[in-house]
Write a protein that binds this DNA or RNA. Structure first.
Lengths: 267, 267
DNA sequence: TATAAAGGTGAATCCGCAC
DNA sequence: AGTGCGGATTCACCTTTAT
């Protein structure tokens, strides 16, 4: 299988082509099915640039469920017994996704809270500021206990204290946020590299294969490369693929944390 | 309906006796179905006193689901159109509960993260420290928009900054933790009063009726009384009821925050 | 009496292998 | 599938005991 590449195509169709037990880690950032109805305005009357992409539209819960059941089933099939899977979502979709994953036999290891240091406030004062997204980290099933978890490395990364399931990380903004030719954000839901860094650093070894079925602008690939991991991305939209390729090819720097693992291997 | 009382009986049977549209707020802390298998020991060889109560045992996911569908349906029926419901859970159950609530038409307003300041570590280094529980705050449905939310009060309570969906609160320990005659914790999952304080303060008015279908040792009732709200608790176990009654009868002090609302009403 | 050391504990899906 | 055992493993508090 060719690695460090982006496959252009439909997520489900492409996942079906993977052999069983072939992937070490899956990171999935699926559509959230946000069900946004009306435009949202800030107090100063400027419009909030929300997620209204066609790919985030589903007709009903069951349509969204069907979609998730299908791609998650394929993920389970192609995941190695020692592998694990991460899925990120918000309250709009994570309870449906989590329920499906449990029904498919995935075994939840942690529900990690991405605690945003700079969330968008609730302008109308109708709710608490929605300051989190949730990452579900799961092994292939209850009996698969040999999943990779670099406990000591994450402890070191966290200042010699065991890392908790709450990760305080800022939104992906400014220089890190990819812009299109029009100067606007190229992807509506680009994730911060720090998030992927913790995911990949904690649950893979160097040389492992990381698969991202919703590759977008390639944050997973960029971080995998910086950490000496192999990656495969699946993405439908050519515009995203173009940006991701450019981004990943430009990477020359390695995160120093990638070397920490070597120490463990030598020891 | 008699308020400020504890009903002894089965949660579902008792909920069925409530009239429609009669309750302002529901706080539910249902069994989590933790599925604990073996004993767990700390590195110093002391045994962790885990949750092994009979009330937390369910035969299967579908058995647990059926239970939750039934009591949540009743909750929806008896909730006022201006009311809202909170359900707390961990990753063991919250994805099933959340999925069911969505299917029943509840409308998620926030998924609040209880970020524990002093969680129990993962002793064997097999996962991240599980540092959170999740509270789902929902209105009766998408079209019910007149739910109570004391935005200004919570902002004041939070040092004049809008409160976010992440609440850093310690575990219920020491003096606050109710003990039995044997000196051991009376209830295995007693919640901190600070958690209920934020729930009741933010989403009810003085004099409102708060219902807790899994009353336990009565944290909801105690906080409701301190905040000048009425409460009804449903609880099956006599031992818990005895403790809760004693606890609530002993309360003479009011949380000063209860008075804040009067200011709003006067204004 | 003051300070230090030791002990207790919390909604926890917490190991791996040999026999 | 169950049992037994060697070995690696923890954070923030507060309470109790020791120096």
């Amino acid at each position: 299988m060719k690695v460090n590449t982006i496959i252009r195509g439909d997520c489900i169709e492409e996942l079906k082509k993977f052999p069983e037990n072939s992937v070490d880690l899956i990171f999935a950032d699926p559509p959230y099915n946000m069900q946004l109805k009306n435009a949202l305005y800030r107090p100063n009357n400027t419009k909030v640039d929300g997620v209204d992409d066609a790919w985030d539209k589903f007709g009903s819960f069951s349509e969204y469920d069907e979609f998730c059941i299908t791609w998650l089933k394929e993920c389970k099939r192609i995941l190695k017994d020692t592998g694990s899977i991460w899925v990120i979502g918000s309250y709009h979709n994570i309870f449906r996704v989590g329920n499906i994953m449990l029904n498919l036999g995935f075994w939840i290891l942690n529900d990690v809270t991405w605690y945003k240091t700079n969330p968008m406030p609730n302008f109308l004062g109708t709710r608490f500021t929605n300051a989190t997204e949730t990452l579900l980290w799961c092994s292939k099933g209850e009996k698969y206990k040999k999943y990779t978890f670099n406990h000591k490395m994450m402890k070191k990364y966290n200042g010699d204290k065991q890392m908790t399931s709450v990760w305080q990380i800022g939104l992906c903004i400014r220089g890190e946020r990819l812009k299109g030719d029009d100067g606007k954000k190229a992807h509506s839901t680009q994730k911060p590299e720090e998030l992927l860094k913790r995911v990949i650093l904690s649950t893979t070894k160097q040389g492992d294969l990381v698969l991202d079925p919703f590759f977008g602008t390639g944050t997973t690939g960029a971080v995998a490369k910086k950490l000496n991991r192999n990656f495969i991305g699946i993405e439908r939209e050519t515009a995203y693929i173009t940006l991701a390729k450019k981004r990943i090819n430009a990477i020359r720097v390695m995160f120093p944390e990638a070397e920490w693992e070597e120490e463990e291997i030598i020891k």
